[in-house]
Nucleic acid binder design. Structure first.
Lengths: 201, 201
DNA sequence: ACATTATGTAACCAATCGGTTACAATGTCA
DNA sequence: TGACATTGTAACCGATTGGTTACATAATGT
């Protein structure tokens, strides 16, 4: 009974908790109100509608830690190696962040324009990282297509890990299998950039 | 007003049509009855429930044309090349068959055990093809992980092509972009199997 | 002390969902 | 013609959904 700001925060935390534990499909106004320990009337008073509530939740999230910016000054790895680490880091991030997986799931599954809107935001960051990275490599062959496939593989396998324990012989539910995949991502990135020249500039 | 058999077929065709045009999410009993031009009471009389109706629809489908069995006797391609063609064929199949995409979408999105049941059936076929193929190659490195990533990439990109026109600079809605991806799949398969020995047997 | 803001309660709306029931109207076949 | 299977109509159930309304109760700041 005091700060509206804090109540709004509690509601958004309820949204986050529901998405993390039950998925976006379970995100109803009634469920959120229950989860946040708040009356559902407040959701409408403060956010207007279900859609705007979800949008508000999505906007306050940051989606990509810029793995590339974690370059220490004394980093003497080649850009090929850094690229491999970049993709591996993305897979790691996705395995850890269930809400991020849920957003991708949503985008793939629904026709809701809002899911596009949010997913665009997610990928804009990733795109920016990729661009700053590709400034140092001269692509050979259709690197764009190969990278698209690699990213897609990362997306799909992390998504399916919530549903299936084993995929193509790999135990997605165990650390061992996930490490095999991350090494696979790294290896595949190396294969993609194997014939790529490094720019001098 | 005559053959029960034909009416059941019309219902199943209605299911198929809805899934193909509006997706599995739109597959309600009322929608199917409307689409099939039949009273919804009949759906219950003949199939029992929504779940059994979907199961009946799924069971009468065949999911993978065995690309590998399309090997003509005079085929003198290496197994590496055949592997590349195999994956490329899978991507082609997925781009063409929207209901297959819808099944994968369903499996990724919902917790419904039925989706697992059906997806298992889908992948059992694919697994069988892969096994008969890998009998001729001695893997070097974690081929399983790399193949998993490739399949995942194929799955994700075909799924996302229903929602997004451009991914990582590739126009998913145009023949040109899809061909780039298919060539990419082929190329990636070659990269994966580059260091793989062919068995003599 | 008073007005303002924040929060709550509870009933209510219209729509949709999967599913059921009772009964009437057809068509088919012997 | 009569028996039987097939199809249809239409009302109904209980549950859930997103969303609204009217009104009462607290806490806050000045």
């Amino acid at each position: 009974m005091k700060s509206r700001e804090e109540t709004e925060r509690r509601i958004l935390e309820g949204v986050d908790r529901i998405i993390r534990t039950e998925g976006l499909g379970a995100l109803g106004i009634n469920a959120v109100a229950r989860e946040a320990g708040v009356n559902k009337v407040l959701l409408y008073r403060y956010f207007g509608s279900r859609e705007e509530l979800i949008r508000a939740w999505a906007l306050e999230r940051h989606y990509w830690k810029d793995t590339l910016s974690a370059n220490t000054p004394g980093d003497n790895r080649s850009w090929r190696e850094r690229g491999a680490a970049l993709f591996e880091g993305q897979m790691d991030r996705l395995f850890e962040d269930s809400t991020l997986r849920e957003i991708i799931r949503w985008h793939i599954s629904s026709e809701d324009p809002l899911s596009r809107e949010i997913m665009d935001r997610v990928e804009r960051d990733g795109q920016r990282v990729m661009e700053s990275f590709s400034r140092f490599l001269e692509p050979e062959g259709d690197t764009e297509a190969l990278v698209a496939l690699l990213i897609g593989g990362i997306y799909y396998l992390t998504l399916v890990s919530d549903r299936t324990a084993v995929f193509n012989g790999i135990p997605l539910d165990r650390e061992e299998g996930r490490n095999r995949l991350k090494r696979g991502v790294s290896r595949m990135a190396e294969l993609i950039f194997r014939d790529t020249k490094e720019k001098k500039a």
